[in-house]
């Protein structure tokens, strides 16, 4: 059961991560075309500023979060790790998972409410390009939600804190 859940979570982690990687690449292209277009031909890429900050940055940050955590890419202090691992019942890892799951659960809950509200109201900015803001907020609950599920599982199936040596952020 736990194994299958891990496979499912791992699948979503990877899909989210691929989207984040694509967003990072698009970000580079957008900013470059905007800057060089402005300089070379006096035509900046209209809307690049908003598209980059409101969508691409949010996607890169929140969709890459679950995979980065699962693969040990989230930096942590490890001064006491070897000692904590000897505590009975993997209490240290369970405690971390419990508290993190609760906090990310709240974050998911509230940010999902916010995103849904923006979808209902179809919040859109005024301007040369009208940006649908609801598509900007949705990435926070998606990324944090997936992370919450993993953290919740780790309360019951604590994993050894991934050390950097074992971690592979790819």
């Amino acid at each position: 059961m736990h194994r299958q859940m891990n496979v499912v979570l791992g699948f979503f982690d990877t899909v989210f991560l691929r989207v984040a990687q694509l967003a990072l690449f698009v970000m580079m292209i957008c900013i470059t075309v905007d800057a060089l277009g402005r300089y070379a031909v006096g035509i900046p890429l209209s809307g690049s500023f908003e598209f980059t900050s409101l969508y691409l940055m949010v996607i890169v940050a929140f969709l890459s979060m679950p995979a980065t955590y699962a693969r040990g890419g989230m930096v942590r202090l490890d001064v006491l790790t070897s000692w904590l691992e000897q505590l009975p019942g993997k209490i240290s890892a369970r405690l971390n998972a419990l508290l993190s799951a609760a906090a990310f659960g709240l974050l998911t809950w509230f940010s999902a409410g916010e995103a849904i509200e923006k979808f209902i109201k179809l919040d859109t900015t005024f301007g040369a390009i009208q940006f649908p803001l609801y598509w900007s907020y949705v990435w926070v609950p998606l990324g944090c939600g997936l992370l919450t599920v993993r953290l919740f599982l780790e309360i019951f199936f604590p994993t050894r804190p991934q050390t950097h040596a074992a971690g592979d952020t790819a």
Partner: peptide, 20 residues
């Protein structure tokens, strides 16, 4: 190319998570 994109995303994710 893909590997470069992967590492850059992973390293950014960690820092952006701290900032958020």
């Amino acid at each position: 190319f893909l590997n470069a994109l992967k590492s850059a995303t992973g390293n950014s994710a960690m820092i952006l998570a701290i900032i958020a």
